[in-house]
Design a protein around this nucleic acid. Structure first.
Lengths: 360, 360
DNA sequence: CTGAAAGCGCTTACAG
DNA sequence: CTGAAAGCGCTTACAG
């Protein structure tokens, strides 16, 4: 038989008001900063209130504040998974920044079940969150329109494809531009680019950066130097099946990539789709007796801690997740405070940074 | 100038009570399951209440429920980092299980600053969480005694070393036992064990499993076959500096390991401290022209997704984080419901499982 | 600055 | 089942 659950009696605001002999208002003003500047408490009184609150171990009740107040000081953080290999540090930074701005973070992992995205949005509503940070990959299910409707104060990581939605995203074109420039500078003659599919806007951005860098250096773009996993490998995204928490990449994709770019086109450098592709690429190249970086230089994309464990360590593009998190939270704070963001401030582009290790 | 923040007017319980023409009590009973079995609402009425609530888009206000109720249905999840390479999936599973039991999850990343652990505990108190799940590594700072004092309903991952504290931990002895048995079965003659330090209880558990397995197979234990990183490498835990989010391992440690076990003692198999050690070990062995697994078999510990990216893929011990999470949440639920757990049920041992890939 | 009061949205005990 | 009321811990508007 279950015994009743009793939370221990906590010290209330009124308790310390009585002890000190002042009004609740004064205590609230001193301890919680309420009442704006309409309440003024003397220095002496203020210090005594602080002291007594400390000695009695006062902890304000957030639920009560939330019920009466205008803000809950709670952010909803919706993610695919805390373990998301592509974004787990972005997630940490988002929490970190939220807390730095005086908020709590309610987290919701959504890969667990197909309807978890919608359930989480509802939970956020019930919880009265002030705003939502969405770090769920675009290619995972979830009704973003409904999220935005229920929570107008929402900032996405990456363009959700909804008009006027606020988001922060990495400058993919610049990422590939940096990598290409670096490889050219290092004397690489035939640079290959590995992408997942032709149609995606994100992949097009990368291609654009690639072409621009080639042009800037007086090189001509050769379509044969671009490898597309799709449509030949429909499951090239298999390593993206966060659902099963599996995070491997079919080696057949990488073998095909080597076949086209290295064997077929004599590439001496490859910009991989991400660090996982790069790690597998390095592995497969070695098996064929092709040396990295001597024969072929490899550049990744992400700067996952995995990059230190490849052999040789991976030269890759850091996506600056910390900066992205700061931008997202700062944008969210502005929206919550009621600012009407102009259209050109609703999209923030983050500058990535090439990190040179040994693979290129 | 900041415009006032106005949360949109939400439908309240009383609104649908008025619409349907019943008491708030009835609505509360139907929609939120309150009042125990003292309230009975007719089937017809109940259905109408459901229907109207749905059509009006009713969302119960959790803050109000929490203020008056006995439970907040909120769990505090305190972690080192969502990106914690050793525990990010444990974190996801903990959230997943908490939600499955009808709770919200307030997350707190603590590696951000030295006092963040204590701050997070305080935040949990303010938020009136029903219980706390602590997944912060023992070797990171934080006052666990204070946590337990403020939140008697706390379950730790791994023994915090506090008498009577509730925790779930992996059977380390069994992990090493399984690995050792497997290696012996595969014909390995000289098996080495890599540990961080002699003094730690956790390392002693591993050593115990190692000795037991050797004994069971009629082998004699040779102390020379155990490598300790410490005290020679005080920073062998450097890869544990989650603080800087760096997750690399000094290769000098691994070189020293190879020197002692492989060169010095002709080990033909090594049980590494974790998957990161194993990955680096494989890399360093290859550089010396030592083949894995032909010359030396390598077994990891964790089953991180990294294990698929080593070359060859890593045979390792899965720590069953999903099971651990289920046990932790289930234990926490029992504590919250008021059960007085007997001493022998306050510590749950999780059985790990050897996952065979190609490195051993 | 104060005190006394109203109210946030809910749950519960009370009298019918 | 109902209605009317009290109360959770706080913030705010009101009259001094």
């Amino acid at each position: 038989m279950a015994v009743e659950f009793d939370r221990p009696k906590r010290v209330r605001l009124v308790d310390i008001a009585e002890k000190v002999g002042v009004s609740r208002r004064a205590v609230s003003a001193v301890l919680l900063g309420t009442g704006g500047n309409r309440v003024s408490v003397g220095d002496q009184k203020a210090k005594e209130i602080q002291r007594v609150a400390e000695s009695m171990g006062y902890q304000p009740n957030f639920a009560a504040r939330q019920l009466v107040g205008k803000r809950s000081h709670t952010f909803g953080l919706i993610v695919a998974s805390a373990g998301d290999p592509l974004r787990s540090f972005l997630i940490q930074h988002l929490d970190e920044e939220s807390v730095a701005h005086g908020n709590r973070t309610l987290i919701g992992n959504t890969v667990v079940a197909p309807d978890r995205f919608e359930k989480t949005v509802q939970l956020f509503t019930n919880s009265g969150v002030d705003g939502v940070l969405c770090a769920v990959h675009n290619w995972l299910p979830g009704d973003r329109e409904a999220l935005l409707k229920q929570h107008p104060c929402t900032v996405f990581y990456e363009d959700p494809g909804i008009p006027n939605a606020c988001f922060v995203t990495v400058d993919r074109a610049d990422a590939v531009r940096q990598a290409t420039n670096y490889l050219i500078e290092k004397g690489r003659e035939r640079i290959g680019l590995a992408l997942t599919m032709k149609s995606s806007r994100r992949q097009k951005d990368r291609l654009r950066g690639f072409k621009e860098a080639l042009g800037d250096n007086g090189r001509t773009f050769d379509p044969q130097m671009v490898f597309y996993a799709s449509p030949k490998f429909k499951d090239a995204y298999a390593h993206h099946d966060v659902n099963s928490l599996k995070w491997s990449l079919p080696e057949a994709v990488i073998d095909s990539l080597i076949e086209q770019l290295v064997i077929g086109e004599s590439a001496d450098a490859i910009i991989a789709h991400d660090d996982y592709w790069a790690a597998t690429l390095i592995k497969c190249l070695r098996r064929k007796g092709i040396r990295v970086p001597d024969d072929v230089a490899v550049v990744g994309y992400l700067n996952h801690y995995l990059a230190d464990f490849t052999d040789p360590p991976l030269t890759t593009i850091d996506l600056a997740h910390m900066t992205a998190a700061k931008e997202m939270v700062s944008m969210l704070e502005r929206m919550i405070s009621g600012e009407e963001l102009p259209a050109d401030q609703r999209q923030v582009l983050i500058q990535p940074q090439l990190i040179v290790r040994e693979s290129a």
